[in-house]
Design a binder for these strands. Structure first.
Length: 625
RNA sequence: GCCCCGGUGGCUUAGCGGUUAGAGCAGCGGCCUUGUAAGCCGCGGGUCGCGGGUUCAAAUCCCGCCCGGGGCUCCA
């Protein structure tokens, strides 16, 4: 139901003639009402008596606010293109009038089914004119907010939940024995019931600040973060790593604009699915929205490309810096859920379903390798696969093969009908210390957007065909990867372990601590020497005790701490404090070359970037704390 | 958007109607200077988020607003 609500000085209307046979009977005279709220009301398909009650309840609230108690319900079809049947509409309008009277409102109704003329005088205050969209369920009504068809449909989706085991057997989720699959149990509970309690700051938020990685930025919009040097380093290392993986997989790397014209015909339809979730940028007479993924840019590019079946599967990749989603303020959570985030997005055009499945398997493996490289093993995440009943019936072997590649039972969501543009979607989900799950890697098989965007390839016979499109993010949002690493470290700490980041991501890999000022020269020289070998090393030249320097290095999670004094200088054997070891074995005796070799070997298949902070600690500002 | 909680020096916080708002860390100045998680002394730094109100008196009580966090919802 749509209502144009006008707080008016007066309205005059006169029925001219009946437009439909079922029109109400009235006198053809002038009716005049003063000091009232006029409700131009349009009853839509799907509206019920309940909708009528809800509408009046909302109107009542408004009446109290503006201290008026008179309304006119004026049938007005022009607010919607999805009109209810006239008989149904009349019934609902009548009910609105009756219910309003019951609430003590002085309610009038203009006749239904008539062509009428009217004059109106609307008051000049800010609340005088309002547009309401009344929809039942969830109280999701907003002034002027149009709820799109697709979203309404989505609310009606029926999901069936299962656990699919690597051997191919599928059991309803309530019959599955979760013993030994604690994380999967939490993930399933999170997905299906979505209920949890706990009220505390997520551990990763405390860590991201304490480690001086990232922080909130009050001067921006919520969910837009500032990144300190160490955080920026980690983030760009992961970005680089993911990008190298995807390029090795064979994708073409491109770059596309971050903002698009709201009025562009190719985008309007897609965009309509997600009302009021965009940042809007006004530029002269244009309104642009900030992209929420790389889809548009890549699709528009592919639309204009000449593509042959020989090119397929055609992979195209972009690391969005950034993607924007204006999540509701209450939905934001540290690095887990942001309004601006960095997203690797790799699409693949495939000739047919056989090729799409083959490609999807490759990307599934790529995603596992990518997470593994970042420092998340299969123990750390759970697989969810979602698909339609029909797709399952036709492609059961393919679905089972994904689960068997994964090697652990997976959560399955099966839909009776297809509501989305894809027939299958899977994700890897990380479960954090507050038992919340969030998706990292994901891939989808999209059967709709090629046509929507006019993306075609030419097949063997010279005919234009629409390809299938796979949408994959092999790592998920980079910020979310960091969230997962921090949450994982905290989990380890909680169970008595030593928290740390993977060696290749540690901002400082080696810290040199001189025992006294007498060894400052040696310490500095050593730090420089290590740095020349593409290892991030620094040295502590502050006027503090050695003990304190070691303590601070440990609190920074530095993997190797080298103390240098007379003994090391004269023997050439270093005392290396290894964060990964415990107790007496923690300090290892080794030569500088051995240490360098060890680090280089462990990080050889990973990108390297220098830390953009001074090598001497006394020269570093403190960003937090 | 709704509900709950919070906002005191850069950070963590004490105070919750009654002296000039107190501490630790960090910063600055100095002392100390050889062995693996906090050496010592001193100094500077606070419109107690903002605006009203109650009161002889407000960081403290009340109202409104702003900002942040969490929960609900949501998550293309």
């Amino acid at each position: 139901m749509k209502i144009l609500q006008l707080h008016s000085n007066f309205i005059e209307y006169r029925p001219i003639e009946k437009e439909i046979s079922s029109a109400e009977d009235v006198d053809k005279r002038i009716y005049r009402l003063e000091d009232l709220v006029v409700l131009f009301t349009c009853v839509e398909k799907g509206d019920t008596i309940e909708t009528a009650y809800k509408a009046i309840d909302e109107v009542k609230e408004f009446l109290n606010k503006v201290k008026v108690n008179r309304i006119l319900i004026y049938p007005y079809a022009h607010l919607s293109s999805e009109l209810a049947e006239p008989s149904e509409a009349l019934k609902i309008l009548e009910e609105m009038g009756v219910y309003a009277s019951k609430l003590g409102i002085e309610a009038y109704r203009a006749p239904f089914g008539w062509c009428k003329e009217f004059s109106i005088s609307v008051k000049g205050h800010p609340l005088a004119e309002q547009f309401k969209s009344i929809v039942l369920g969830g109280g999701k009504t907003g002034k002027g907010e149009v709820i799109s068809k697709a979203l309404e449909a989505e609310e009606k989706i029926v999901s069936h939940w299962f656990i699919l085991k690597p051997d191919g057997s599928m059991v309803p989720v309530e019959e599955f024995d979760f013993a030994g699959h604690e994380n999967l149990r939490k993930f399933a509970a999170y997905e299906i019931s979505k209920s949890r309690a706990a009220q505390q700051t997520p551990p990763h938020v405390i860590l991201m600040r304490k480690l001086e990685l990232a922080d909130y930025e009050d001067a921006s919009d919520p969910g837009n973060f500032r990144w300190y040097p160490k955080g920026n380093l980690i983030k760009s290392l992961i970005e680089e790593f993911v990008t190298e993986k995807v390029i090795a997989y064979g994708a073409l790397k491109v770059e596309t604009p971050i903002m698009y014209d709201l009025e562009h015909p190719a985008l309007a339809n897609y965009l309509h699915r997600f009302p009021a979730r965009q940042y809007i940028v006004k530029s002269e007479d244009k309104e642009l929205f900030l992209r929420f993924s790389a889809c548009f840019g890549q699709f528009l590019m592919l639309h204009d490309a000449q593509i042959s079946y020989r090119h397929l599967p055609l992979k195209i990749y972009e690391l969005t810096h950034y993607s924007f989603r204006r999540e509701k303020s209450g939905e934001l959570a540290g690095l887990r859920r942001l309004r601006a985030f960095t997203m690797p997005d790799c699409h693949a055009l495939c000739a047919d379903m056989e090729q799409a499945k083959e490609e999807a398997i490759k990307r599934f493996k790529l995603s596992m390798e990518t997470l593994e490289g970042i420092g998340l093993t299969r123990e750390d995440y759970e697989l969810a696969i979602r698909f339609t009943k029909d797709f399952y019936a036709a492609n059961r072997d393919f679905i089972v093969s994904l689960v068997s590649l994964f090697g652990k039972p997976a959560l399955v969501e099966m839909w009776d009908e297809r509501f989305f543009y894809f027939v299958l979607k899977w994700e890897f989900n990380f479960v954090d210390n507050l038992d919340k799950a969030s998706a990292l890697s994901t891939d989808q098989i999209d059967i709709e957007n090629a046509e929507r965007y006019g993306i075609t390839y030419v097949d063997e016979k010279g005919e234009k065909k629409y390809p299938l499109i796979l949408h994959c993010s092999p790592s998920g949002a980079i910020e979310r990867d960091i969230y997962a690493l921090l949450e994982k470290a905290y989990k380890i700490q909680k169970t008595g372990g030593t928290p740390m980041l993977p060696l290749w991501l540690s901002p400082t890999q080696v810290r040199i601590v001189p025992v006294s000022e007498n060894f400052y020269n040696e310490a500095e020289k050593m730090a420089e020497e290590i740095s020349k070998r593409r290892i991030r090393a620094d040295w502590d030249d502050r006027p503090l005790t050695m003990q304190k320097k070691i303590r601070e290095a440990e609190m920074e999670w530095i993997p190797y701490i080298v103390v240098i004094g007379q003994e090391e200088v004269s023997t050439g054997m270093l005392a290396v404090r290894d964060r990964r070891l415990r107790g007496e074995r923690k300090i290892r005796r080794m030569r500088l070359e051995e240490l360098i070799d060890e680090i280089r070997k462990e990080t050889e298949d990973k990108p390297f970037k220098p830390l953009t902070l001074p090598m001497a600690l006394s020269k570093r500002p403190r960003f937090y704390g």
